[in-house]
Simulated assay, not measured.
Amino acid sequence: MSFLWPWALLGLLALPLLVWGYLRALPRPARTAALHPDLALLAQASRRPRPLRRHLPALLYLGALTLALLALARPTAPLPLPDNRTAVMLVIDVSRSMEAEDIAPSRFVAAQEAARNFVKSLPEGARVGLASFAGYAVLNTPPTARHERVLAAIDGLGLARRTAIGDGLLEGLNALPERGPDAPAAGGERPQAAIVLLSDGRNNSGSEPLDAAARARQLAVKVYTVGLGTENGDPGGVPWGGFLGGFDAETLRQIATTTGGRYFEARSADQLSSIYRSLGRSLGWTVQPREVSGLLAALAGLLLLASLAVSELLVRRIL
Rank of each mutant, 00 (worst) to 15 (best):
residue 5 W to C: 04
residue 11 G to R: 10
residue 15 L to R: 06
residue 17 L to F: 15
residue 17 L to G: 14
residue 17 L to D: 08
residue 18 L to Y: 10
residue 21 G to F: 08
residue 23 L to M: 08
residue 24 R to L: 14
residue 27 P to V: 10
residue 28 R to K: 15
residue 35 L to P: 00
residue 37 P to S: 03
residue 51 P to Q: 04
residue 52 L to Y: 05
residue 57 P to T: 08
residue 58 A to D: 04
residue 61 Y to A: 15
residue 63 G to N: 09
residue 67 L to F: 13
residue 69 L to S: 01
residue 73 A to S: 07
residue 82 P to F: 02
residue 88 V to Q: 14
residue 91 V to P: 04
residue 93 D to P: 02
residue 101 E to F: 10
residue 103 I to M: 10
residue 105 P to W: 10
residue 106 S to F: 07
residue 117 N to A: 15
residue 117 N to D: 14
residue 119 V to T: 11
residue 123 P to D: 04
residue 126 A to K: 09
residue 129 G to Y: 07
residue 131 A to Q: 04
residue 136 Y to N: 11
residue 137 A to Q: 03
residue 137 A to C: 13
residue 140 N to E: 15
residue 144 T to D: 02
residue 157 L to M: 15
residue 164 A to M: 02
residue 171 E to Q: 13
residue 171 E to T: 09
residue 172 G to S: 11
residue 173 L to Y: 03
residue 177 P to F: 04
residue 181 P to A: 13
residue 192 Q to C: 03
residue 193 A to Y: 06
residue 204 N to T: 01
residue 205 S to H: 12
residue 209 P to C: 05
residue 213 A to Y: 01
residue 214 A to K: 11
residue 218 Q to A: 09
residue 218 Q to V: 00
residue 222 K to C: 00
residue 236 G to C: 03
residue 237 G to Q: 06
residue 239 P to Q: 08
residue 242 G to V: 01
residue 243 F to E: 01
residue 245 G to E: 02
residue 246 G to M: 02
residue 247 F to H: 15
residue 250 E to V: 14
residue 258 T to S: 14
residue 261 G to Y: 03
residue 262 R to C: 07
residue 266 A to Q: 11
residue 266 A to C: 11
residue 267 R to E: 15
residue 270 D to P: 07
residue 273 S to K: 15
residue 278 S to A: 15
residue 286 T to R: 13
residue 286 T to N: 03
residue 293 S to T: 02
residue 301 G to R: 04
residue 310 V to D: 00
residue 317 R to S: 05
residue 317 R to G: 13
residue 319 L to T: 12
